[in-house]
Design a protein around this nucleic acid. Structure first.
Lengths: 98, 98
DNA sequence: GTATCATATGAACACATACTCATATATTCA
DNA sequence: TGAATATATGAGTATGTGTTCATATGATAC
C-alpha cells in the first residue's frame, strides 16, 4: 500500500484542526499575524497552553513564527489551511440550519 | 462567546477525518457506496473496527447507511466531505514535494 | 424452527493528548 | 550587571480514543 503515507499525512492535517483550541488559534491567525499573548486571549486559554498548541501547529507546518523584539509573531503558513477552514465553516453552517 | 459552538462543530468535523482509518473509509466511499466487509478490506482493518468507525462517521453525519438484504451499504453523506478531503489531498501533495 | 452470514455493540485495555504548574530561556531596559 | 517581560518546555495528570475480543442482533436459507 503506497497510499498509506498519504492518508497519514492528510489525517495529520485534519488532526491539527480537530481541536477547538487549535482551530480558534488558526481562526485568529486568519485575521492576520499575532503574538502569543494576543492569541491566548482570543482563544481564551493560558499562555502556556497557547504556546504548547502553537508548537504543535508549528511542527505540523500550519504556522510559522518570527521574533519581533520580545514578542514572537505567529503567521498562517499557507492558503491551503485558510481555504480548508473556510470550507469546513461552510459545511458547519449548512449542517446547523438543517 | 457565541462562536464557541461553531468552532466545536468545525473541530468535530475535522476530528472525524483526523484518523487514518476513518479517512481511508471515507476515501473508499468517495469511489461509491460500499458494504462493511468491503470497506474493512479496503481500509485494512477488522470488520469490527470498521463497524465502530463507521458508527462514528454516522453519528457525525458524514455517512449514511441503508440495509440491502443482509448487507449494510454505506454512502458519503454530502459533497462537502468530498471537497474537504480533495482539498486536504492537494495540500498534502504540495507539502510532500517541497 | 436452526444454522449461517453480515453487522453492531459493550467492555477492557493501551495509547495519545490537552491541560496545569513549575521552571527555563531570551530579550529589553535600567 | 540585574529586574521585568514574553515565550518555551518538561513533568505530571486527567481525559479521550482506537483497537480487540466476546457477544448480540438481524436477515437469509434450509
Amino acid at each position: 500500500m503506497e497510499n498509506q503515507k498519504a492518508w497519514e499525512a492528510m489525517a495529520q492535517m485534519f488532526a491539527a484542526l480537530s481541536d477547538p483550541t487549535r482551530l480558534k488559534l488558526v481562526g485568529a491567525l486568519m485575521d492576520g499575524p499575532k503574538c502569543v499573548h494576543e492569541l491566548s486571549e482570543l482563544a481564551g486559554i493560558s499562555e502556556s497552553a497557547a504556546s504548547h498548541q502553537l508548537r504543535t501547529l508549528r511542527l505540523l507546518r500550519l504556522v510559522t513564527h518570527q521574533r519581533q523584539g520580545q514578542h514572537i509573531i505567529y503567521t498562517l503558513n499557507d492558503d491551503h489551511v485558510y481555504r480548508l477552514v473556510e470550507q469546513a465553516r461552510d459545511h458547519a453552517l449548512e449542517e446547523s440550519h438543517e
